[in-house]
Design a protein around this nucleic acid. Structure first.
Length: 650
RNA sequence: GCCGAUGUAGCUCAACGGUAGAGCAACUGAUUUGUAAUCAGUAGGUUGUCGGUUCGAUUCCGAUCAUCGGCUCCA
């Protein structure tokens, strides 16, 4: 045995015998305390792994991100062991760590019930109490395949069979249970304990819906009980911010079985909706967009030309009229390209930024509908930009600037960008796609955006950039998107006359900043917990009378606010002030104006702004109050306005 | 679409093989109230829908619709 030197950050280098375990080496340095695994170089390893060469070694604490991964991964194994003990017929498959937890998929002839989960959890605790050593071993691939096949674990055998034959297979054994695994794991099951199984769900084997459905058990685990409790409490809080709860509670919208997936917007919700549209229209003035209104229903010939009939028909509502087939539009693009194609266009007309707030209808599969975030009927702040190839970069940059402005205005900071590339089913030439994908990535880099690449996720007509945000339950949704169209200009044969008199094919961009208005409202509600900004709030001011004596003054204040264009409600109910304040607060009203005898005598109000911890605010004259509310209600359009790039008039 | 769960008053929930109850909200009355819930009373439900088992179903069974959690798919 040769002697090696191990560097340990923050400690003296340690001399050790080659082959000593990571735990032993760390112990020599006095760095083992609490460690759950170790990092050798950039690799996380088991504490029991032998160290056989000079290297750098660091302990991993249970509460560190890597430590949590180890705990969750080991807890997934714990789950599998418990399930195998209780349901020997169940076959194990995979059990990865996910954000905030883990899951494990089992092939089992029936679903697991909530009662099963309780039993499984109890069994897991028994295994923790038994404190089995978790032992790593290696096995040649074919031997491992045979081993799992012989005990009826067909799925596991299939996974191993897919690993190159020269790679040794890592196996982890704890008590009566052995699983294929890359590791690393905790040293013994006793190190686990702060876990909870959360829910069950079906999941297709290898994520393909043609494959059999497995039973997935989700759970979460932490380094200690307290953090687990904290996490569970956080989930409860998140539920309160869920737009599906807030929307109906604030009387903004509702969904009914009579129109599944197509929301009813109540008067207050309609104000929010229309105000968002007004905001975007204001931006359009500055960014040089023109708005159009286009048909809702087209003969399917249009969709045959656009390629939607071929590639998107499954998601469309088709209707038969007079022995002719019509389709309700799922997107605005075909209509817009068609419209562009009417009349002769010159390079002087470009760019044309054609905006449209039409309602769109898509036949989403029943299981995917979700509140306002995934619906069958919705509108987008949609626009299509037709430009020359030379204008593409500038148009793209302008879109990114607009998007940044909007997201800043709403305080959305947790946004991730993904460039989604050519899918299996696509239209247009691969060369054009490559070019377009590169253009998107270059543009993002120039604008200083970070992004990931999501291969194969693009639309069938072109690659896209998706601006993804998360809802209260941490599910990711796409709001803004921009796509370069690689197909439709060709398919519709649209053209423009270039300066040299020849015909050119315009470039086409599809883009939306809010994305779907419905989805945007959902995310905004969750982001703000229902406390919409003053300019968007359906009721901006609520005037509260203290007694019947001041009813007239309260009504007058209401009229003055209304005259200034402010959305106001006057609460003259025969109730105590505290009751009315609570009622207004529960509805997240941004501004409350209290009116009592003192205010009535002075022609004043006592304002109370949401989120300001003032009670018994000093009175303010009605005029000053109205002016302040009006000032603070303005659309969040930044003052620094660039000259819009408009098509030249000739 | 697939796997699983759920569906009782406007909302949140209770009960149960013998035709449903609370709190909040609503309505009425009293109270005239000063910065997050005044008191009292009234009304409100073919227990999602359809079918089956049963002397009897809201309860048990089946189908269906919708919703929820996932999978697959997407703004």
């Amino acid at each position: 045995m040769s002697e090696i030197t191990v560097r340990i950050p923050g400690h003296e280098p340690v001399r050790a015998q080659a082959g000593e375990s990571a735990a032993a080496v760390l112990k020599k340095a006095g760095a083992i305390r609490g460690a759950i695994a170790a990092r050798r170089g950039d690799q996380v390893i088991d504490l029991s792994r032998p160290i056989d060469a000079d290297c750098e070694l660091a302990p991993i604490a249970p509460s560190s991100p890597e430590g949590l991964d180890v705990i969750r991964h080991s807890t997934a194994h714990l789950l599998a062991q418990a399930v195998k003990r209780l349901f020997p017929q169940a076959q194990v498959t995979i059990g990865p760590v996910i954000e905030d937890g883990f899951y494990y998929d089992f092939a089992f002839e029936r679903g697991f019930t909530p009662e099963d989960l309780e039993r499984i959890e109890a069994e897991m605790r028994k295994i923790v109490a038994a404190d089995y050593q978790v032992v790593r071993s290696e096995s040649p691939r074919d031997e491992a395949v045979e081993r799992f096949r012989s005990i009826g674990e067909e799925f596991k055998a299939e996974i191993i069979a897919g690993i190159p034959s020269n790679e040794p297979i890592g196996l982890y054994t704890q008590g009566d249970f052995t699983d294929l695994c890359r590791g690393p794991h905790v040293q013994s099951t006793g190190r686990l304990g702060a876990f909870k199984l959360t829910h069950v769900a079906g999941a297709y084997w290898r994520g393909d819906e043609r494959n059999p459905m497995l039973q997935r058990i989700y759970g979460t685990a932490f380094a200690d009980k307290a953090t687990l409790e904290e996490h569970l409490a956080l989930l409860e809080e998140a539920k309160k911010r869920d737009h599906r709860r807030l929307g109906p509670a604030l009387d903004l919208f509702s969904l009914h079985p009579i129109a599944p997936g197509i929301p009813f917007f109540h008067p207050h919700g309609t104000v929010v909706y229309n105000t968002l549209v007004a905001y975007v229209r204001e931006l359009y003035k500055r960014y040089g967009y023109t708005e159009v209104i286009t048909p809702q229903l087209y003969k399917t010939d249009l969709f045959k030309t656009s390629g939607h009939y071929e590639n998107y028909r499954e998601d469309m509502f088709l209707v038969a009229v007079d022995e002719e087939e019509y389709g309700i539009k799922p997107m605005n693009c075909p209509g817009h390209v068609y419209l562009f194609g009417q009349g002769k266009k010159s390079y002087r007309d470009l760019p044309i930024r054609m905006a449209d707030f039409s309602r769109l209808h898509r036949f989403e599969r029943s299981g995917v509908l979700n509140g306002l975030t995934r619906v069958r009927g919705f509108a987008q702040d949609d626009a299509h930009i037709f430009c020359t190839p030379e204008q593409l970069d500038e148009e793209f940059a302008s879109f990114l600037a607009m998007t940044r402005e909007v997201y800043d205005a709403f305080g959305f900071t947790d946004i991730s960008l993904a460039v989604e590339t050519r899918p299996e089913k696509f239209l247009g030439s691969p060369e054009l796609w490559d070019q377009a994908e590169k253009a998107l990535q270059d543009g993002l880099r120039r604008a200083g955006f970070e992004f990931s690449v999501s291969a194969g996720d693009g639309a069938f007509y072109g690659p896209k950039i998706a601006f993804n945000v998360r809802d209260a339950l941490k599910r990711s949704w796409t709001l803004a998107t921009i796509q370069i169209d690689c197909a439709m200009p060709d398919r519709f044969g649209i053209s423009y006359v270039r300066p040299d008199g020849a015909e050119g094919r315009p470039m086409m961009l599809h883009r939306a900043v809010l994305g779907s208005i419905e989805r945007f409202i959902a995310i905004l509600l969750e982001h703000t917990g229902g406390a919409l900004p003053l300019w968007l709030a359906p009721v901006q001011v609520r005037v509260l009378s203290v007694t019947d004596r001041v009813a007239e003054h309260a009504a007058r204040v209401g009229r003055q606010l209304e005259a200034a264009g402010i959305r106001v409600e006057v609460d003259q109910r025969n109730e105590k002030l505290g009751f009315k304040i609570r009622a207004a607060e529960v509805l997240k009203t941004p501004v409350i104006a209290v009116v009592g005898d003192k205010e009535a005598a002075a022609g004043a109000v006592a304002p109370r702004w949401r989120g300001v911890a003032s009670q018994g605010a000093p009175a303010q004259s009605v005029e000053a109050f109205v002016a302040e509310v009006a000032e603070r209600s303005r659309l969040p359009i930044s003052a620094a306005v660039e000259e819009p790039v408009r098509a030249q008039v000739h």
